[in-house]
Nucleic acid binder design. Sequence first.
DNA 1: TTGTTATTACGAAAATCTTCGTATATATTT
DNA 2: AAATATATACGAAGATTTTCGTAATAACAA
Lengths: 130, 130
Amino acid sequence: MSSFFKNMQPTDSELEILQVLWENGPSTVRSVNDRINERRSVGYTTTLKIMQIMTEKGILSRRKKERTHIYTPVLKKSETQSLLVDKLLKNAFGGSAGKLVMQALGNNKTSAEELRQIKDIIKNLEKKQE
Amino acid sequence: MSSFFKNMQPTDSELEILQVLWENGPSTVRSVNDRINERRSVGYTTTLKIMQIMTEKGILSRRKKERTHIYTPVLKKSETQSLLVDKLLKNAFGGSAGKLVMQALGNNKTSAEELRQIKDIIKNLEKKQE
DNA sequence: TTGTTATTACGAAAATCTTCGTATATATTT
DNA sequence: AAATATATACGAAGATTTTCGTAATAACAA
């Protein structure tokens, strides 16, 4: 991943928008704003402004499609998630992924399927450590 | 945990200070600032100000000890970590702890000991699910 | 063509964060 | 007691975030 993004730290509002784009794919401001308004009330121009700023920052890109713009996240979902996890790890868990994992597993319900997947990952990691 | 703290979202600077307090126990501004200055240069009054604001917000408490103040985090380390994990979970992983865990384990080196502990946790969770 | 609607651009206000300078108070030292 | 050192309080500047209102632009409809 380009080192340019190492310092990307989306704000809460920006993350809210990214989530919509991850779920729905490339979208117009209108569409994103409608989606957000299902949960809380925000003006159209507010969402527009934040998406414009995100574009300036390089978090989103856009292309003209007839009279509107279609916005797309520059980084893949997993890349952004990775940056966020790394940041939390560094800022609150002294870099220990294990501690973070235990906290996440302990406080939340995780499906049997996911638990199985996690066990596979651990198995692979242990194999590497030998 | 009191619902009062559900919205506590320490900023990066605040988290930096919390980390020092977690590691060193209740401390003076001087001591925290010295610790931070081992890694980056910040003025004493900057640290003082942030710790004063954190006290106003209820993130820290303080007591007078002779001529200085001793600051202490109001929440335990694990409680704050839990809040931060929950927030990241909600904001970036659609609530799926499994996805977060996989991301954290995949991108980072975790000690054999920690992997063992995580397996224990999973074992217990699976037991509960049956 | 003239009015209506949907979209983007621009600018600005309010809130918060980060930083530090200066003033004040309280010890400590000479 | 006067000078020095240390700590807190206060305020303010600059940056960023969040929120909208208003204006300009472009498409569409009557």
